[in-house]
């Protein structure tokens, strides 16, 4: 009799395991940091792209309602795809674009801007990737929509596409 209970317990336990593993199969096995609403971006100081001046982020983010921080590089192919959306966004009111040039050569990056037009109000250099890590990004391209209190409103990993573009427009309207 005792064994029957034990068997039942085991069967229930393994059924439970089966269900968990079965469900687990559907989850992606790679990790993407979750977007944490209202997280405040850590302020950073970095050199400005053209002037090589040291500038603090919070000194720029003041008047406008929204800022779009976009991490890009001339060697990054998906960055070219999203460029047209950045140009369009730049024409919007209530938003300013801040570029972060990730691990790039100055010459290449400048050529890139000359070839494709420069959508950014200001560009920071991120020669060794430290700024991007401070921001909580993990690759290029990556985009943060923040307000003037440096709160993150939206985060886009990978290139901006029509869908995410519209979402940004919705927010800043």
């Amino acid at each position: 009799m005792k064994n029957k209970y034990l068997l039942t317990i085991f069967i229930i336990f393994f059924t439970f395991c089966f269900i968990i593993l079965f469900k687990g199969l559907k989850n992606p096995n790679t990790y993407q940091p979750e977007f944490n609403q209202n997280r405040v971006l850590s302020d950073f100081t970095s050199t400005e792209f053209f002037s090589d001046e040291k500038i603090k982020l919070s000194t720029i983010v003041t008047d406008e309602k929204y800022y779009l921080i976009n991490i890009w590089a001339s060697w990054c192919i998906p960055c070219r795809k999203e460029h047209k959306f950045l140009i369009k966004l730049q024409k919007q009111e209530k938003i300013k674009l801040i570029g972060i040039n990730y691990k790039d050569k100055f010459k290449n990056a400048k050529n890139f801007l000359n070839d494709f037009e420069n959508p950014y109000q200001i560009i920071f250099k991120d020669k060794n990737g430290i700024v991007s890590i401070e921001l909580g990004a993990y690759g290029v391209p990556e985009t943060f929509l923040i307000n003037k209190n440096l709160q993150i409103i939206k985060k886009i990993i990978g290139p901006i596409n029509p869908k995410t573009y519209n979402e940004i427009i919705e927010i800043i309207k």
Partner: peptide
């Protein structure tokens, strides 16, 4: 490491891991 997800940044040589090491050092 977020890029080579099976490794620590100590074992990984990806751009991300290299930058992360700099950040930790800083």
């Amino acid at each position: 490491c977020l890029i080579c997800q099976g490794q620590s940044i100590y074992d990984s040589q990806s751009d991300f891991a290299e930058s992360m090491k700099l950040v930790v050092r800083q």
